[in-house]
Amino acid sequence: MNEVILSVDNLRVGFPTEDGVVQAVNGVSFELRRGQTLAIVGESGSGKSVTAQSILGLINRRTADISGKVIFQGQDIVAMPDKQLYRLRGAKMSMIFQDPMSSLHPYYRIGAQLIEAVRIHQRVSKQQAREQAIEMLRMVGIPAAERRVDDFPHQLSGGMRQRVMIAMALINSPALLIADEPTTALDVTVQASILELITQIQQTHDTAIIMITHDLGVVADVADDVVVMYGGSVVESAPVAEIFASPQMPYTLGLLASIPRLDRDPDRRLDPIPGNPPSLISPPAGCVFNPRCVYADRVDGNRCQSQLPELLPVSPVHSVRCHIPAAEREAIARSALSGLVIGAGDPA
């Protein structure tokens, strides 16, 4: 096993507002090893993006309450002074964002933006930085990179811009790459090639990746481990094969059941999870998922409505936050997923 390069321990991020504190992340913990890919899955508002931005220290510490630990290569990001953080960001860890159309500065040539990224962290001349930029653009599959380097972002397509973003994120060979829904804003055909590019670069650079997504197809493609988030908390975490083969938390089940499938009757409606994501200002009492959980009545004494379940291990690698007894959870999963061919491709 490779060494752990990132460990998040009981991370909490709250944003005070006039209506109360929005507790976007509520005690999240996980670990990531070098060269591995961790997928963080959840719907909008589950806290996955805020978690990712906290890891890079991008959440403004003056306007947000952040507690817990984010240990990256032995150093705690949460407590780190700004100046030290600037040296890590973009060099040792970097991030690509959801929308490539708006993530590049529209007024600067992509070359200038790449060169800037190089020269913050490396003592090289402009010319050397430019050569690195062209080399990197070539690597991420930009045709005629030596000419494209002088283009402005608006002269490139969405897929090309995301390749530029990837080039910019990887130009200083970081140990950790966070990809926040990197394919959500792209065409399906482009999605596949971008994912392929990311996994290919991971293999050559031995980069650890956190892939934030709500697309379970992406998870099956690239992830080693999966963390499922709901309402700011981790509700289930397991290796990818296990998440698809034996999901234990009703929310994970719901996510799996709501994927459109080609092997089912095309006229059959999808099975969405009923209800809406919880309010993060005044979350429901008990289990955050209980108002939408169809199995909440299977637990005695209304514990789902009154007591927050703990995230407990069911095996050394698999943890679940649920009051339903383990045996019953497995039965529920079997019946809910019966007849479904789980997983896209070979998740292992």
Binding site: D82, K83, Y86, R89, G90, S94, F97, H105, E116, H121
Partner: peptide, 15 residues
């Protein structure tokens, strides 16, 4: 509040 400002910060540029 723009996305590219977040990108600039993520690059490691000082504020």
């Amino acid at each position: 509040g723009e996305d590219y400002i977040r990108t600039a910060r993520a690059k490691g540029l000082p504020e």
